[in-house]
Amino acid sequence: MLENNGIDVWRSSSGPNSSLDFMLPPDMDAMMDSLALTYTVQIPDVEKAVQISLISNEQARLQSSATTFNYAVYHPMSEIYQWMSDTQAVYSSYVTIMDIGSTNDGNDIKALKVSVSSDANRPAVFIESALHAREWVSPASVLWMTNELLQQYGTDADVTAILDEFDIYIIPVVNVDGYIYSWLSSNTRLWRKNRDDPRSAKEIRSGCIGTDLNRNFRIRWAAKNGASPDPCSVTYKGSRGFSELETRAMTNFVKSIGNRVAFVDIHSYGQLLLYPLGYRGGRTIDDMDFRASAQAATAAITAVHGTNFIYGSVYSIIQKVTGDSIAYMYKKAVIKYSVALELRDRGTYGFLLPADQIIPTGEETLAGILAFLDYVSNNP
């Protein structure tokens, strides 16, 4: 109902006693009264909050060392590309940059392969983020976590054990065009979709741009009520399953790698660990392992800074979702442990999480992923 009224839903409800977050245009008091909701204003002026967050981050970036990458600020796409090149140069024996595809605007989608062994057919783990452009803490925390994995290999027992067993493929930004667009101005900061030009007659008539990449995978794509058919919606599913270059590139890349054992799709926000399925209720045959691995991961997350996560299936925790990445990777790419993480917070800042929370978010998320992969290792 909210999306049908042009409302941008930031976070869906995660159960009967939970809330949902949405952003209202000005002068929407009458509509709020008609919905008869009990509500709390989290961010009174989103435009002002965006401007403040951008200014604060830019000041921190300008104060950063010219030679040392600052993990405690958000970085534009050009700096992420440079970080990937620099990381490969420093850890050339462990790190390989892989070009996995390109976007509508001709930008490269890049992955890092982290492997400490030349052995063939090692178990493969995939970590990707920024399917949604405005979720800046997702790629920021992934960069920090990747650096920690490389720095701590050989000294930290948990990190060493994981890298000794798994090859890890990291895609910091899948939605490259959308991410670049979200950096252009305060007016574009909250852009979610990709930036694909309208192609179908329906899209052209709408005058709207972009597809929600996490509704575009060819898994129950045509089912009702799991994504929006409206090209102007933030959850628009696209003109067909895999209509988008980004979803095709990521899927083809993942499926080109053998011995796939885990897939982690990192988002923000909500503090959730989600597993399949999203398109229907009920348990999968792997439900016991999903629950146990999620319990281990969320306990490890909480142990770092006390941040509490809820876990469960997408359908039970959020809502019906179709065309999402983890359902596709679980069912079609046959990756048993396919999960999604929704990082900090629960709505105080939403997509505008202050940069000083990037490293704490990375610290707890890395602890959770290590615990999750430890469970994967012991329960294939």
Rank of each mutant, 00 (worst) to 15 (best):
176 V>N: 00
166 F>N: 06
150 L>P: 05
143 L>Y: 08
132 H>E: 09
134 R>H: 07
142 V>P: 06
118 S>N: 12
122 R>H: 08
186 S>Q: 08
118 S>K: 08
170 I>E: 10
100 I>F: 05
134 R>S: 07
171 I>L: 05
165 E>Y: 15
101 G>K: 04
95 V>E: 11
133 A>R: 05
114 V>Q: 11
135 E>M: 01
183 W>R: 02
165 E>I: 06
96 T>A: 14
153 Y>T: 04
85 S>E: 14
107 N>D: 01
174 V>E: 00
136 W>M: 10
155 T>K: 04
127 I>R: 06
154 G>M: 02
148 E>S: 15
100 I>C: 03
154 G>H: 04
115 S>A: 13
170 I>T: 01
175 N>M: 05
88 Q>T: 11
130 A>N: 13
90 V>F: 12
133 A>V: 15
135 E>Q: 10
81 Y>R: 02
177 D>I: 13
87 T>P: 10
138 S>R: 02
154 G>S: 01
88 Q>N: 10
153 Y>S: 09
146 T>D: 12
104 N>W: 13
86 D>G: 08
155 T>E: 09
136 W>N: 01
108 D>N: 03
188 T>W: 03
167 D>W: 06
85 S>A: 10
158 D>P: 00
154 G>P: 02
166 F>V: 03
120 A>E: 13
89 A>M: 05
153 Y>E: 04
189 R>Y: 01
110 K>L: 12
157 A>D: 12
169 Y>H: 14
186 S>N: 14
182 S>M: 04
149 L>V: 10
160 T>Q: 00
165 E>C: 10
144 W>A: 14
149 L>K: 07
162 I>V: 15
183 W>E: 08
171 I>C: 00
144 W>Q: 10
132 H>Q: 14
154 G>R: 07
129 S>H: 03
181 Y>E: 13
172 P>W: 02
101 G>T: 03
162 I>W: 03
178 G>L: 08
116 V>A: 02
156 D>E: 11
144 W>N: 08
175 N>V: 05
97 I>M: 14
104 N>S: 14
183 W>V: 01
173 V>S: 00
120 A>Y: 05
144 W>Y: 15
143 L>S: 06
83 W>M: 07
163 L>V: 08
142 V>Y: 11
128 E>I: 10
178 G>R: 05
166 F>L: 01
152 Q>V: 06
171 I>F: 01
158 D>Y: 02
118 S>L: 05
105 D>Y: 14
119 D>R: 12
186 S>H: 14
99 D>Y: 04
170 I>V: 15
132 H>D: 09
122 R>W: 08
146 T>L: 13
97 I>V: 13
128 E>K: 09
85 S>L: 14
153 Y>H: 11
141 S>F: 13
188 T>D: 08
133 A>L: 11
178 G>Q: 13
136 W>K: 14
84 M>F: 00
166 F>G: 00
119 D>F: 04
116 V>T: 11
148 E>H: 10
100 I>Q: 09
133 A>N: 12
100 I>W: 00
119 D>V: 12
115 S>K: 05
113 K>T: 07
174 V>I: 12
115 S>I: 05
119 D>I: 09
138 S>D: 00
186 S>P: 03
165 E>V: 08
141 S>M: 15
107 N>Q: 15
133 A>W: 01
91 Y>N: 06
155 T>F: 12
171 I>Y: 00
176 V>T: 03
155 T>R: 13
99 D>T: 13
